[in-house]
Nucleic acid binder design. Sequence first.
DNA 1: TTATTTTCTGAACATTGTTCACGATCTTTA
DNA 2: TAAAGATCGTGAACAATGTTCAGAAAATAA
Lengths: 218, 218
Amino acid sequence: MKNKEIQEQRMKGYFLQATKDLLKAEGLKNVNVRNIADRAGYSYATLYNYFKDINDLVFLCVYDFFEECEQHVHAHAKKQERGIKRLRASIRGYADFFVQYPGIFALFFTEDFGTFKDKSHVTEVISLSLDRVCEEEWNYCVSKGIVKADSVEQLKSQLRHATLGLLLLYINQRAGFSYTELINRLNLQTNAILSSSSIEAGPGNFTVNNSLISIKVK
Amino acid sequence: MKNKEIQEQRMKGYFLQATKDLLKAEGLKNVNVRNIADRAGYSYATLYNYFKDINDLVFLCVYDFFEECEQHVHAHAKKQERGIKRLRASIRGYADFFVQYPGIFALFFTEDFGTFKDKSHVTEVISLSLDRVCEEEWNYCVSKGIVKADSVEQLKSQLRHATLGLLLLYINQRAGFSYTELINRLNLQTNAILSSSSIEAGPGNFTVNNSLISIKVK
DNA sequence: TTATTTTCTGAACATTGTTCACGATCTTTA
DNA sequence: TAAAGATCGTGAACAATGTTCAGAAAATAA
């Protein structure tokens, strides 16, 4: 009875891996049962012995992709000194990850769940993904008194929605600007949110000349 | 030569109207050539005599939908007194419009353009739609000295992205909260952005008790 | 080795976008 | 007005994709 379980998990893993590879390499529109099965080395019909439908398979990838995103962010952010700087770097890393893999962005935020069951788990991972990858740094900022504990939830929420909105326009080609310009706008926007009254002024955090428009990042 | 033009525009109009009705009534996933043609009273093949493909037809609807959105917003906002209050009401109206028609949100922000040509026009309408429906009120606020002229672009941008991000999570069912809660969060977020240093304090605008979290709207 | 259960597979069906040849209709012209 | 020609509308047909199913292949049990 144990072997059967192991073998089933192994089979699921093959399809899952094939789906992830395909999604990263060719985007969500090229993810279909025949392509997945080809990569996995089985017939498309076999897939249905292990997954209810293609949504079941595709949305299972969210967990792995979130971990990848987390690692990408941490690898990018750990070069910065702790505090607001690292927080900013985390947000930048988060955006970079989805720009690099637009298919993962589509899966996380725009793809219809269809018949996918138990979406509450996966929606929480998705909707709080930016908060999660920044969590350690938020805690640090609060513990050091850089950010007021009262304000953290409000700041997280602002950053979450602002980052998402900007990414949505850029990744779905609604914004007419370049990648460089995206990063520019992301920085401006992040600074505007972080330079609220909830952030204690401190040397090396950032310099604001009291106008929202021209914020100079040190 | 003139009659032909008129007749062609009329035919396009039938398909366009059918597409809009369908999209509003049944959402983007039920918009397909056969359903559209049924509503228009023609065969699905006839559609291809007037439009290059279905994307050509569907993205043409953007212009009309934007006008509808604009009217919805104005009808909702004109009850408020001019200035920050009406600005807030406009943002609320904008969100309401897309909540009422999730298919229009999908078309505006998440649907792939495919082979759609000349997207620069339509992307501008889309990406600046919130700015446009608020334009009159921004001008008013600047002219009355309620908002610093320097800050307007930054504020527009913040509101645009924050509103979009929040709507994305709600409409695509990534957020686990109700409509009431959405409006709550939207108001909080809007107030946080509008109560920056760029907004002059004034009687009746709003009351802030200096913390980001608990803003009381008068 | 044979029988039974499990796993895998292509055929087949539904849906959707698109093309195309053909017939209907309208216009031109002798 | 009637024949010739142009234009328009149509279903058949093809491709791509999701899904189901009966049966082949493989693994297991007797």
